[in-house]
Every structure is written in structure tokens, then in C-alpha cells.
Design a protein around this nucleic acid. Structure first.
Ligand SMILES: [Mn+2]
Ligand SMILES: [Mn+2]
Ligand SMILES: [Zn+2]
Ligand SMILES: [Zn+2]
Lengths: 152, 152
DNA sequence: GACATTTTGATAGTAATTATCGTTAAATAG
DNA sequence: CTATTTAACGATAATTACTATCAAAATGTC
């Protein structure tokens, strides 16, 4: 499941070529920085790490490449809703259906999903208070208007 | 599961009193606006809805009260990571453990979780491409430093 | 290596959110 | 019911995260 680093970097180079992306020094360093991070880093964190290796790098370059990589399917974003706060008053346990295109969020009742549970003990003394499932996909409207555009 | 509106508003009033929060006109209108929204609205959307009823309301008031409500457990945020983009290079199907306090995200292997699946047909022609579980709770470090502060 | 095309770095600009502060409304005491 | 205290509000400046612009530099192709 966890291929070795150089193998993943080689795969990265191939996918860049396939996607017609120039293989720049910056790109490889940025990609490696994410690859080596276990903590699901923010662009700022990546910027700090990359700056240690390429002091002259611009924050804009980091952001631009992160988006390039996401579009090419080389990286993924943890949540589709980092753009702004999204609220709900429904405090009952339930799940969500999210459209990767328009970001719509639809509630799914708890009873509509097979019970989720962690088989192993949570790592490192973590106390779990709730669990919910996020189903990602395309809503009907978006599916109609787009016939496959590299999606997470 | 879906109590009637006025009942929920009455519950809201009680919880405000219990939490020592003044019952202002603005608060009730804001809370109702979220309660009546099925679409997991952003603060801007709530602001627009509320403005129709209280034209002089300030956007800052909407934001402040939303946070007051979240802190009091009256509302919940859909994602704990709306502050900034969080990345991952792990493209395999897996799940997450998230600390509600420090926002740390830890990977859980797919094999550690009972298989998730939707029992019913997805509503309205939604095409699901992937599903992942988010377990929320407190990491060991945060559990140590906080003995219960109203958490989602 | 020369040329066309991308990408980069610097920086100005924008969107979402938060802080500040003087004014107003809610809660409480009398 | 009125006065007083305290919490909340509205206007707006400030901050944070991100995006657009554009001239200079690096890539890829022949
Ligand atoms: Mn919901
Ligand atoms: Mn992950
Ligand atoms: Zn959609
Ligand atoms: Zn924590």
C-alpha cells in the first residue's frame, strides 16, 4: 500500500509527462514535500518545507503547483469545503453526499448506511466521539453538464 | 428525527438561557435561518437570508453568533478544516481520524474500518465515486489538556 | 543552441473572516 | 416600570488565505 518514495517520485515524473506538464525542480520538491508529510499539510506548511530547499521559491508557485497536481490527480484535498464555513443545525448522527463539482451537500440518514465502526483500537489514545461517512460523487445536474473532468 | 420548527426554536431559547446567552432578535432570526436551510449554508448565505428580515444587520453579527452557537453546541460545522486547504498524496482508499481541538488528521487504513455502503439508492441520480469515514474526537495530547469544552 | 511555450517570482488584488470600538438593547435590581 | 449593569450590535478596519498579473527565467523540441 505504501510504495517506496523514489518509486512514487518516478511515477510522478511519468504522470507529469503524460499530462504535458514540464518537470521543474520546484515541482519535484513540492511534490516530495507533500509525499513525505504524514500530517495532511496546508500549502503554508509545504511552502515552509520547500523554502528550506529552494529559498527563493514564491508562495504563489507553491499554490499554483498544488492546484496543478490536484487537477492532474496527483494530490487530493482532504475536504472539498475549505473555501468557507458550512453549517448545519441537524445535530443527529447522519452522513453526507457531496458533489465534487458544485460542492452541494445532501444529508443521508444514519439508517441509510451500514453501521460504521473501527475494527482496531484507535491509535495513540485517541478518544472517538462520533463518526460520519462522506460519499463523494457527481450530482445529477453536474453529471449532465460534464462528461469526466479529472475528479477526486 | 425531524422535530417541528417551533419546538426546535423553543429548545434553542432554553439552551441560550442555560448557557447565559441573551435572547436577541438577531440571534433567533439567525438560528432559524440555519434551521430552515437544508443545504448546509455558508455564513454569507445566512447573512443574505437574515438581511431580508433585518435589513440593518451586520455581517459581523452573523459571524459572531454563528460561532457562539457552535461553541454552545447549537450548530455544527460540516468540516473542521475550512480554515485552509489540507493535502494528501495518499491516493488509496482510506479513512481519517480528526482531532476536534487541534485539527490533526491521521490516516486509517481501509482494512481497519468495517466496509461502508449505502443501503438505499442514492437520491436524485447522484453518481457516487468514493466513500470515506471521518472519526472525530480528541487526540491524546488534547484530551490531556482539556477536560470537556463543548465539542462537536 | 535557437525558438516557442511554460513556469517562476514578485507583488498587487480579492474573498472570507476577525478585531475594535462606540452605540444600543437585554437582563436584572429596586 | 425605571435605572443600572452588562452583553450584544453595527460599522468598519485589519488580517489571513488565496488568486491574478506580468516580466524574467527555465523547459522542451528541433
Ligand atoms: Mn448534514
Ligand atoms: Mn489521508
Ligand atoms: Zn453538483
Ligand atoms: Zn488534538
Amino acid at each position: 500500500m505504501r510504495a517506496n518514495l523514489e518509486q512514487q517520485v518516478e511515477n510522478f515524473r511519468e504522470r507529469c509527462r503524460a499530462a504535458g506538464l514540464s518537470l521543474t525542480h520546484q515541482r519535484e520538491i513540492i511534490y516530495r514535500a507533500v509525499l513525505e508529510s504524514r500530517e495532511h499539510p496546508s500549502p503554508e506548511i509545504i511552502y515552509e518545507k520547500v523554502k528550506a530547499l529552494i529559498p527563493a521559491i514564491s508562495l504563489a508557485t507553491v499554490y499554483k503547483n498544488i492546484h496543478t497536481f490536484i487537477d492532474a490527480g496527483l494530490l487530493r484535498e482532504v475536504t472539498l469545503h475549505h473555501g468557507s464555513l458550512r453549517l448545519e443545525a441537524n445535530l443527529s448522527e447522519h452522513h453526507h453526499l457531496v458533489c465534487v463539482r458544485c460542492k452541494a451537500i445532501v444529508d443521508l440518514d444514519e439508517s441509510d448506511v451500514a453501521p460504521v465502526h473501527l475494527k482496531r483500537r484507535p491509535p495513540a489514545g485517541f478518544r472517538i466521539t462520533r463518526a460520519s461517512v462522506e460519499f463523494r460523487g457527481l450530482c445529477a445536474a453536474c453529471a449532465k453538464s460534464s462528461k469526466l473532468t479529472a475528479q477526486s
